[in-house]
Amino acid sequence: MAVAEQVKNVLEARGLVKKFGKKTALAGIALNIREGDFTGLLGPNGAGKTTTIKMLTGLIKPTAGEIYYYGRDFFTHPRDAKRCIGVVPQQSNVDRDLTAYENLYLHSILYGIPKKQRRGKIEEALEFAGLREYGHRQVKTFSGGMKRRLVLVRALLHGPKILFLDEPTVGLDPQIRKNIWDLILKINQRKGMAILLTTHYIEEAEKLCRSTYIIDKGRIIAEGSPDDLKKDMGRYVLELFLEDRIEEEFFSSKDDALTRLKECGHACKIRQVTLEDVFIKLTGKRINV
Protein backbone atom coordinates (compact mmCIF):
# COMPACT_ATOMS: atom_id res chain seq x y z
CA MET A 1 0.00 0.00 0.00
CA ALA A 2 1.49 3.29 -1.10
CA VAL A 3 -0.21 5.24 1.67
CA ALA A 4 1.04 3.01 4.44
CA GLU A 5 4.60 3.29 3.22
CA GLN A 6 4.60 7.02 3.73
CA VAL A 7 3.82 6.70 7.41
CA LYS A 8 7.01 7.23 9.36
CA ASN A 9 8.42 4.82 11.91
CA VAL A 10 8.43 6.49 15.29
CA LEU A 11 10.06 3.66 17.17
CA GLU A 12 11.98 0.63 16.14
CA ALA A 13 13.49 -1.79 18.62
CA ARG A 14 15.48 -4.91 17.87
CA GLY A 15 16.83 -7.77 19.94
CA LEU A 16 16.05 -6.24 23.33
CA VAL A 17 17.41 -8.36 26.15
CA LYS A 18 17.27 -7.55 29.84
CA LYS A 19 18.84 -9.62 32.56
CA PHE A 20 18.48 -8.92 36.26
CA GLY A 21 21.42 -10.85 37.65
CA LYS A 22 20.86 -14.38 36.46
CA LYS A 23 17.20 -13.88 35.71
CA THR A 24 16.33 -13.10 32.11
CA ALA A 25 13.35 -10.75 32.10
CA LEU A 26 13.41 -10.15 28.35
CA ALA A 27 14.87 -12.65 25.93
CA GLY A 28 15.02 -10.65 22.70
CA ILE A 29 12.13 -8.44 21.69
CA ALA A 30 11.52 -6.51 18.48
CA LEU A 31 8.90 -3.80 18.12
CA ASN A 32 7.85 -1.38 15.45
CA ILE A 33 5.61 1.60 16.06
CA ARG A 34 4.52 3.99 13.33
CA GLU A 35 2.97 7.42 13.54
CA GLY A 36 -0.60 7.27 14.74
CA ASP A 37 -0.43 3.58 15.72
CA PHE A 38 -2.47 2.30 18.62
CA THR A 39 -0.60 -0.74 19.84
CA GLY A 40 -1.23 -3.03 22.78
CA LEU A 41 1.41 -5.00 24.63
CA LEU A 42 -0.41 -7.87 26.31
CA GLY A 43 0.94 -10.55 28.57
CA PRO A 44 0.45 -12.26 31.93
CA ASN A 45 2.00 -10.99 35.17
CA GLY A 46 5.77 -11.01 35.01
CA ALA A 47 5.86 -11.37 31.21
CA GLY A 48 8.14 -8.37 30.90
CA LYS A 49 5.76 -5.59 29.83
CA THR A 50 6.91 -3.02 32.34
CA THR A 51 10.54 -3.93 31.73
CA THR A 52 9.99 -3.35 28.01
CA ILE A 53 8.42 0.07 28.59
CA LYS A 54 11.12 1.11 31.05
CA MET A 55 13.76 0.21 28.52
CA LEU A 56 12.07 2.03 25.66
CA THR A 57 11.72 5.17 27.77
CA GLY A 58 15.27 5.20 29.13
CA LEU A 59 14.51 4.28 32.71
CA ILE A 60 16.62 1.14 32.57
CA LYS A 61 19.37 0.12 30.19
CA PRO A 62 18.99 -3.03 28.10
CA THR A 63 21.56 -5.78 28.49
CA ALA A 64 21.59 -5.99 24.70
CA GLY A 65 19.63 -4.62 21.77
CA GLU A 66 19.01 -1.49 19.75
CA ILE A 67 16.38 1.23 20.02
CA TYR A 68 15.75 3.88 17.37
CA TYR A 69 13.42 6.87 17.46
CA TYR A 70 12.78 8.30 14.00
CA GLY A 71 15.72 6.24 12.83
CA ARG A 72 18.15 7.77 15.32
CA ASP A 73 19.94 5.74 17.96
CA PHE A 74 18.31 6.26 21.35
CA PHE A 75 21.52 5.72 23.28
CA THR A 76 23.66 8.19 21.35
CA HIS A 77 20.88 10.81 21.08
CA PRO A 78 18.87 10.37 24.26
CA ARG A 79 17.82 14.01 24.60
CA ASP A 80 16.19 14.30 21.19
CA ALA A 81 14.39 11.02 21.66
CA LYS A 82 13.25 11.79 25.19
CA ARG A 83 11.62 15.00 24.00
CA CYS A 84 9.27 13.02 21.78
CA ILE A 85 8.37 10.47 24.47
CA GLY A 86 5.51 10.70 26.98
CA VAL A 87 5.23 8.16 29.77
CA VAL A 88 2.45 7.06 32.08
CA PRO A 89 4.18 4.55 34.38
CA GLN A 90 2.48 1.64 36.11
CA GLN A 91 2.60 3.50 39.42
CA SER A 92 1.34 7.07 39.35
CA ASN A 93 4.55 8.91 40.15
CA VAL A 94 3.11 12.37 40.64
CA ASP A 95 4.73 14.44 43.33
CA ARG A 96 2.50 14.25 46.36
CA ASP A 97 4.13 17.26 47.97
CA LEU A 98 3.26 19.56 45.10
CA THR A 99 -0.07 20.79 43.77
CA ALA A 100 -1.38 19.58 40.42
CA TYR A 101 -0.36 22.90 38.88
CA GLU A 102 3.15 22.67 40.34
CA ASN A 103 3.53 19.11 39.08
CA LEU A 104 2.77 20.26 35.57
CA TYR A 105 4.95 23.34 35.98
CA LEU A 106 7.90 21.18 36.99
CA HIS A 107 7.36 19.05 33.91
CA SER A 108 7.24 22.13 31.70
CA ILE A 109 10.62 23.27 33.03
CA LEU A 110 12.22 19.84 32.64
CA TYR A 111 11.05 19.62 29.03
CA GLY A 112 12.06 23.16 28.15
CA ILE A 113 8.60 24.49 27.34
CA PRO A 114 9.06 28.27 26.83
CA LYS A 115 8.00 30.29 29.84
CA LYS A 116 5.32 32.24 27.98
CA GLN A 117 3.51 29.09 26.90
CA ARG A 118 3.60 27.31 30.25
CA ARG A 119 0.58 28.80 31.93
CA GLY A 120 -1.70 28.32 28.93
CA LYS A 121 -0.61 24.74 28.34
CA ILE A 122 -1.01 23.82 31.98
CA GLU A 123 -4.49 25.28 32.19
CA GLU A 124 -5.47 23.47 29.01
CA ALA A 125 -4.10 20.22 30.45
CA LEU A 126 -6.00 20.61 33.72
CA GLU A 127 -9.16 21.30 31.76
CA PHE A 128 -8.62 18.22 29.58
CA ALA A 129 -8.11 16.08 32.68
CA GLY A 130 -11.23 17.48 34.29
CA LEU A 131 -9.10 18.85 37.13
CA ARG A 132 -9.59 22.55 36.57
CA GLU A 133 -10.93 23.26 40.04
CA TYR A 134 -8.26 21.09 41.63
CA GLY A 135 -5.21 22.77 40.12
CA HIS A 136 -4.03 24.31 43.35
CA ARG A 137 -4.76 21.40 45.61
CA GLN A 138 -2.00 19.19 46.99
CA VAL A 139 -1.81 15.94 45.04
CA LYS A 140 -1.76 14.10 48.40
CA THR A 141 -5.48 14.73 48.60
CA PHE A 142 -6.26 13.26 45.14
CA SER A 143 -8.05 9.98 44.49
CA GLY A 144 -6.43 7.27 42.38
CA GLY A 145 -8.41 8.28 39.31
CA MET A 146 -7.49 11.94 39.67
CA LYS A 147 -3.81 11.06 40.01
CA ARG A 148 -4.03 8.86 36.93
CA ARG A 149 -5.55 11.65 34.86
CA LEU A 150 -2.92 14.06 36.12
CA VAL A 151 -0.10 11.68 35.14
CA LEU A 152 -1.72 11.30 31.74
CA VAL A 153 -1.93 15.01 30.95
CA ARG A 154 1.52 15.55 32.40
CA ALA A 155 2.88 13.00 29.92
CA LEU A 156 1.20 14.97 27.12
CA LEU A 157 2.26 18.44 28.18
CA HIS A 158 5.35 18.68 25.97
CA GLY A 159 3.54 17.31 22.92
CA PRO A 160 5.21 13.91 22.57
CA LYS A 161 5.04 11.90 19.35
CA ILE A 162 4.63 8.62 21.16
CA LEU A 163 2.88 7.91 24.42
CA PHE A 164 3.70 4.90 26.59
CA LEU A 165 0.98 3.78 28.97
CA ASP A 166 1.71 1.02 31.48
CA GLU A 167 -1.59 -0.25 32.86
CA PRO A 168 -3.26 3.14 32.59
CA THR A 169 -6.52 1.98 34.15
CA VAL A 170 -5.57 -0.73 36.62
CA GLY A 171 -7.29 -0.47 39.97
CA LEU A 172 -9.85 2.08 38.83
CA ASP A 173 -13.59 1.63 38.83
CA PRO A 174 -15.38 1.02 35.50
CA GLN A 175 -16.69 4.57 35.19
CA ILE A 176 -13.27 6.16 35.55
CA ARG A 177 -11.70 3.48 33.40
CA LYS A 178 -13.99 4.37 30.56
CA ASN A 179 -13.29 8.02 31.13
CA ILE A 180 -9.54 7.43 30.83
CA TRP A 181 -9.90 5.27 27.72
CA ASP A 182 -11.96 8.06 26.15
CA LEU A 183 -9.18 10.53 26.86
CA ILE A 184 -6.58 8.20 25.37
CA LEU A 185 -8.64 7.59 22.27
CA LYS A 186 -9.14 11.33 21.82
CA ILE A 187 -5.40 11.89 22.05
CA ASN A 188 -4.70 9.23 19.47
CA GLN A 189 -7.33 10.48 17.04
CA ARG A 190 -6.98 14.22 17.40
CA LYS A 191 -3.25 14.48 17.63
CA GLY A 192 -2.29 11.39 15.69
CA MET A 193 -0.01 10.47 18.54
CA ALA A 194 1.34 6.92 18.50
CA ILE A 195 0.33 4.90 21.54
CA LEU A 196 1.89 1.83 23.09
CA LEU A 197 0.01 0.50 26.07
CA THR A 198 -0.09 -2.48 28.34
CA THR A 199 -3.28 -3.55 30.02
CA HIS A 200 -4.84 -6.37 31.91
CA TYR A 201 -8.23 -5.63 30.44
CA ILE A 202 -8.06 -7.56 27.20
CA GLU A 203 -11.58 -6.68 26.16
CA GLU A 204 -10.63 -3.05 26.29
CA ALA A 205 -7.43 -3.66 24.36
CA GLU A 206 -9.43 -5.54 21.74
CA LYS A 207 -11.74 -2.59 21.22
CA LEU A 208 -9.02 0.04 21.06
CA CYS A 209 -5.81 -1.42 19.70
CA ARG A 210 -5.24 -1.68 15.98
CA SER A 211 -2.22 -3.87 16.54
CA THR A 212 -1.05 -6.01 19.43
CA TYR A 213 1.99 -7.87 20.62
CA ILE A 214 1.43 -10.78 22.92
CA ILE A 215 4.36 -11.32 25.21
CA ASP A 216 5.08 -14.20 27.56
CA LYS A 217 8.18 -15.09 29.57
CA GLY A 218 10.14 -12.31 27.95
CA ARG A 219 9.34 -13.23 24.35
CA ILE A 220 6.85 -12.03 21.78
CA ILE A 221 4.74 -15.05 20.97
CA ALA A 222 2.28 -13.43 18.56
CA GLU A 223 1.71 -10.12 16.84
CA GLY A 224 -0.87 -8.59 14.54
CA SER A 225 -4.21 -6.83 14.60
CA PRO A 226 -6.78 -8.28 17.00
CA ASP A 227 -8.79 -9.35 13.96
CA ASP A 228 -5.93 -11.23 12.33
CA LEU A 229 -5.00 -12.95 15.57
CA LYS A 230 -8.59 -14.09 16.00
CA LYS A 231 -8.83 -15.22 12.39
CA ASP A 232 -5.75 -17.36 12.86
CA MET A 233 -7.46 -19.19 15.70
CA GLY A 234 -10.82 -19.65 14.03
CA ARG A 235 -13.64 -17.18 14.34
CA TYR A 236 -15.98 -19.28 16.45
CA VAL A 237 -15.64 -21.10 19.75
CA LEU A 238 -17.69 -24.02 20.87
CA GLU A 239 -17.73 -24.22 24.65
CA LEU A 240 -18.40 -27.73 25.94
CA PHE A 241 -19.64 -27.83 29.50
CA LEU A 242 -18.04 -30.98 30.82
CA GLU A 243 -18.56 -32.15 34.38
CA ASP A 244 -15.44 -30.62 35.88
CA ARG A 245 -14.38 -28.02 33.35
CA ILE A 246 -15.22 -26.11 30.23
CA GLU A 247 -13.50 -27.21 27.07
CA GLU A 248 -13.15 -24.96 24.08
CA GLU A 249 -12.95 -25.92 20.43
CA PHE A 250 -12.23 -23.45 17.66
CA PHE A 251 -13.81 -23.30 14.18
CA SER A 252 -13.29 -21.07 11.22
CA SER A 253 -16.99 -21.00 10.27
CA LYS A 254 -20.22 -21.05 12.16
CA ASP A 255 -21.48 -24.03 10.13
CA ASP A 256 -18.57 -26.22 11.20
CA ALA A 257 -19.19 -25.26 14.78
CA LEU A 258 -22.90 -26.07 14.45
CA THR A 259 -22.19 -29.50 12.95
CA ARG A 260 -19.93 -30.29 15.89
CA LEU A 261 -22.50 -28.93 18.32
CA LYS A 262 -25.14 -31.32 17.03
CA GLU A 263 -22.95 -34.41 17.41
CA CYS A 264 -21.19 -33.68 20.68
CA GLY A 265 -23.88 -34.68 23.14
CA HIS A 266 -22.85 -32.27 25.93
CA ALA A 267 -24.33 -29.02 27.03
CA CYS A 268 -22.59 -26.48 24.84
CA LYS A 269 -22.62 -23.01 23.47
CA ILE A 270 -21.27 -21.24 20.40
CA ARG A 271 -19.84 -17.77 20.55
CA GLN A 272 -17.41 -15.58 18.63
CA VAL A 273 -13.73 -15.78 19.41
CA THR A 274 -12.38 -12.96 21.52
CA LEU A 275 -8.87 -11.69 21.91
CA GLU A 276 -8.95 -13.16 25.39
CA ASP A 277 -9.37 -16.64 23.85
CA VAL A 278 -6.31 -16.02 21.72
CA PHE A 279 -4.45 -14.86 24.75
CA ILE A 280 -5.36 -17.84 26.90
CA LYS A 281 -4.62 -20.30 24.17
CA LEU A 282 -1.20 -18.82 23.52
CA THR A 283 -0.04 -18.19 27.05
CA GLY A 284 -1.98 -20.95 28.78
CA LYS A 285 -2.97 -18.39 31.37
CA ARG A 286 -6.04 -16.46 32.18
CA ILE A 287 -4.91 -12.93 32.84
CA ASN A 288 -5.02 -11.81 36.44
CA VAL A 289 -6.89 -8.65 37.12
Binding site: L59, P78, D80, P89, N93, V94, D95, L110, Y111
Partner: peptide, 18 residues
Protein backbone atom coordinates in the same frame (compact mmCIF):
# COMPACT_ATOMS: atom_id res chain seq x y z
CA UNK B 1 11.52 8.88 49.97
CA UNK B 2 10.99 10.48 46.59
CA UNK B 3 12.95 7.68 44.97
CA UNK B 4 11.57 4.59 46.67
CA UNK B 5 8.08 5.48 47.76
CA UNK B 6 6.82 7.96 45.24
CA UNK B 7 9.06 7.26 42.24
CA UNK B 8 9.32 10.99 41.63
CA UNK B 9 12.93 10.42 40.68
CA UNK B 10 11.78 8.49 37.62
CA UNK B 11 10.34 11.70 36.23
CA UNK B 12 13.87 13.17 36.21
CA UNK B 13 15.40 10.08 34.65
CA UNK B 14 12.86 10.01 31.84
CA UNK B 15 13.14 13.75 31.10
CA UNK B 16 15.56 15.08 28.46
CA UNK B 17 18.07 16.27 31.06
CA UNK B 18 21.56 15.09 31.97
Amino acid sequence: ITRFYFHVFDEYLIAPIS
